[in-house]
């Protein structure tokens, strides 16, 4: 599963881990994240992310 990196702070979204604090369960693809999901580190929106 493809990882995505935040262009602002460098956080990497790893679908294998999800984003438990943001209510995103393990195994959720980046593409399937809700449109209003934001980077758990810096609050950047999904558009700031690119494939790692």
């Amino acid at each position: 599963m493809k990882k995505y990196v935040c262009g602002i702070c460098g956080y990497v979204y790893d679908p294998d881990k999800g984003d438990p604090d943001g209510g995103i369960s393990r195994g959720t693809l980046f593409e399937k994240l809700p449109a209003d999901w934001t980077c758990p580190v810096c609050g950047a929106s999904k558009e700031e992310f690119s494939p790692e």
Binding site: I8, C9, V41, C42, G43, A44
Partner: peptide, 9 residues
């Protein structure tokens, strides 16, 4: 007002 990443989270 949150200003995350100017210049820390």
């Amino acid at each position: 007002m949150e200003t995350r990443m100017i210049h820390w989270p």
